[in-house]
């Protein structure tokens, strides 16, 4: 069974179709990048996948379960979502923030169990931010912050991980680190989908690619999808533009 199956997904925005009859599947171990120009519906797609917004037509299934019929608690156990930016005015520590990933797993009237604490500590280790555990999230650099929210998503122990521009605002080293982390998570059997702003980053480990643009889409193996000709057409660039990845 695919970890994520999307079929016939259609969504309109301001009267015009944004996503039309979109279908694809992700399996455990897949690492898919979602590419496309601004306004092509990349972020909207992720929110449709989690059921936060409702499609006009079509279906999204997580481990065989129809998303539109799921309660948020069940959904958070099946898929974890990392927003492009999460801000809070309150000084939660990194560990408290990661523990919040256990919201859907912990009994609702108790404190966190030992298992919740262990899951949080494992997530801190996997993302390499154990040393930040006691710091307030509001004192972190952009890159550290991104890792903290990825750790929160990992603590959910969901099999599908969705990330909205996890590398934006990061310096090159952090971009490379985050892509390496996501690739290794896919290697551990998660299905990962990440909206990326720069096609060149997709070369760092993505095996699938979904390219959106002008109500159309293309989905396939990353190697085929990320050809300069394909990307040039999607972004409206000349095929020899230096912004496109070389093959």
């Amino acid at each position: 069974m695919p970890a994520l199956r999307v079929s016939g997904l259609t969504f309109s925005y301001n009267g015009g179709p944004l996503l039309q009859d979109l279908s694809f599947e992700l399996h455990p171990g897949d690492f898919m990048c979602v590419l496309g120009p601004n306004g092509s519906g990349k972020s909207t797609l992720l929110r449709l996948l989690t059921g936060y917004i409702k499609p006009a037509a079509g279906s999204v299934r997580l481990a065989g379960e129809e998303v539109s019929a799921l309660k948020p608690g069940r959904l958070a156990r099946l898929a974890a979502y990392v927003a492009s930016e999460t801000a809070t005015p309150y000084d939660f520590s990194v560990r408290e923030m990661v523990l919040l990933g256990r919201t859907a797993r912990a009994g609702f009237w108790r404190g966190y169990s030992a298992a919740d604490g262990a899951a949080a500590d494992l997530a801190l280790q996997e993302t390499g931010i154990v040393r930040l555990a006691g710091r307030s999230v509001n004192t972190l650099s952009t890159g550290e912050r991104q890792l903290a929210f990825i750790a929160q998503a990992l603590a959910q122990e969901a099999k599908v991980l969705l990330l909205d521009e996890p590398t934006s605002h990061l310096d090159l080293k952090y971009k490379s680190d985050v892509m390496g982390l996501l690739r290794s998570l896919a290697g551990k059997g998660l299905a990962v989908a990440a909206v990326l702003h720069e096609p060149a980053l997709a070369a760092l480990g993505c095996n699938k690619a979904l390219v959106l643009g002008a109500g159309r889409y293309a989905f396939g193996p990353a190697s085929a999808m990320l050809s300069p000709a394909n990307l040039a057409a999607a972004y409206g660039l000349p095929p020899d533009s230096p912004l496109l990845p070389k093959q």
Partner: peptide, 11 residues
């Protein structure tokens, strides 16, 4: 953390 985050955490 905001309504968006709350939803995705299972609330």
């Amino acid at each position: 953390l905001g309504e968006d985050s709350a939803y995705h955490l299972g609330v």
